[in-house]
Design a binder for these strands. Structure first.
Length: 412
DNA sequence: CCTCCACCGGAAAGCCGGGTCA
DNA sequence: TGACCCGGCTTTCCGGTGGAGG
């Protein structure tokens, strides 16, 4: 065929996405479907900011992908817009505490944003605090500080929250109010009661989206993200249904849609179908597991590897004891320290919690009570991930032979 | 109905690296 | 700087247990 005009080829390839960034979580859309109630609630709490009063602090809860961050950013943007028109000094500063995760960094970052020159390390904390106070108080303004993933901050002590929550009493001209966002309801328990009561003057809960709501969200984004007609009908409801089954996680739904599109694109398909979505689900699961396995501690990796060894010798179910015997012999072969069975048992339950393996405690009557372990993961992928670790390089030498010699006969 | 297997899983103490404070 | 503390990981010890087989 001579239809090999290079531009035509590229154009064809481009035919799926109009703008794929719309499907990323960093994107804040023009309007947020099904969050009217929360938007209005936040807006009415922040309203006093426009008339020079201090808005109440807000604590926001909700699982991942329920639109907390997007909503807050959205309302914040609108507030800044109006205040500019009204000639009021009112600013919203957003911090993600997963990245900025210590008292010092929070204060320093804020001070920097407000135009102070504070080094990111080195100063005593209270000096930074004073600088920050100074920066805030230099004119009549309202500063709203958004602390996303605030639970991450609390784990390392709640001094910042304590300081920030009473900063108002030390200011003459300016006002500060806080918005904390968390997906962990339990984090309140770790908080000093005084901080908690000041922080949670208002509480707003973001419920998970249901399938129909997710569908609306996806439709809205898909219109911007995809060229017309590339989505097979049923793709969006399918993605929505899958995500709704989990936690009503919009982030997941969007990921699903984007990855489906990417898969279709990479195969030069013109239309995204349900099949692509199914493929995307598989890919996401696989990526998730690979990631989890990569970050596993060494001992857990070796335990998992022992299970894979058993699996490859044809076994589909195994007990703690069997895994332990194989594990011990592998430890000896590669000269790793051998943990006790008690500990290994704990590590096995950890693997179970992570969803890498499936285990249940069953009783086999006379033959004891034990955990029955099953692997339902892409074994060869996981195996490669483990062997990729340089510390397990030497395991490759035993490939295929590890069970025939010493360990297998142990449980004959 | 009792036994007894092969492990479960709680409690507590030890070890270790890192951080804090006088 | 050394005494001390903290939290995570691991070991030790041990009581507990569902159900096949007698």
């Amino acid at each position: 065929m001579i239809d090999s005009n290079i531009f035509e080829k590229i154009l064809k390839k481009r035919s799926i996405f109009k703008n794929r960034d719309v499907l990323r979580h960093s994107y804040t859309p023009e309007y947020l479907p099904h969050r009217k109630e929360q938007i209005e609630a936040i807006a009415s709490i922040l309203l006093p900011a426009l008339s020079g009063e201090t808005p109440s602090n807000i604590l926001i809860y909700g699982k991942t992908g329920t639109g907390k961050t997007a909503t807050v950013k959205f309302v914040g943007k609108q507030l800044e817009e109006v205040s500019r028109k009204m000639n009021v000094h009112c600013y919203v500063h957003y911090l993600n505490c997963e990245i900025i995760d210590t008292q010092y960094r929070v204060l320093a970052t804020l001070a920097k944003v407000l135009g102070k020159n504070v080094p990111m390390t080195g100063w005593p904390t209270d000096q930074v605090y004073d600088e920050l106070k100074d920066a805030i108080d230099k004119r009549n303004q309202t500063i709203i500080i958004v602390l996303d993933e605030i639970d991450k901050l609390v784990r390392k002590g709640d001094d910042v929250l304590y300081n920030l929550s009473r900063i108002n009493s030390e200011l003459k001209n300016a006002r500060v109010s806080l918005i904390g966002i968390s997906n962990d309801l339990k984090f309140k328990n770790f908080l000093d009661p005084r901080v908690l009561s000041s922080l949670s003057e208002e509480e707003i809960i973001f419920p998970p989206y249901n399938a129909t709501q997710l569908e609306d969200i996806l439709n809205q984004r898909a219109e911007l993200a995809f060229h017309e007609g590339v989505l097979d009908e049923g793709v969006i409801p399918y993605c929505a249904a899958l995500a709704a089954q989990e936690h009503g996680d919009a982030r997941k739904a969007l990921d699903l849609l984007r990855i489906s599109g990417e898969i279709a694109e990479s195969r030069d398909d013109r239309v995204v179908t349900k099949e692509h979505v199914k493929e995307a689900v598989r890919k996401m699961e696989c990526d998730h597991i690979t990631e989890a396995v990569k970050t596993l501690p060494n001992q857990s990796k070796l335990i998992l590897y022992s299970m894979i060894a058993l699996y490859e010798s044809g076994r589909r179910k195994f007990t703690t004891g069997e895994v332990y015997t194989v594990y011990k012999s592998l430890c000896r072969k590669i000269g790793m320290e051998i943990l006790t069975q008690r500990r290994v048992s704990d590590l096995i339950s950890e693997l179970d919690m992570l969803g890498i393996i499936n285990s249940i405690v069953i009783s086999k009557g006379r033959y004891g009570r034990t955990r029955e372990i099953k692997l339902d993961i892409p074994v060869d992928v996981v195996k490669e991930v483990i062997l990729d670790d340089y510390r397990f390089e030497m395991l490759r030498r035993y490939e295929g032979g590890y069970l025939t010699n010493s360990s297998l006969e142990l449980f004959e």
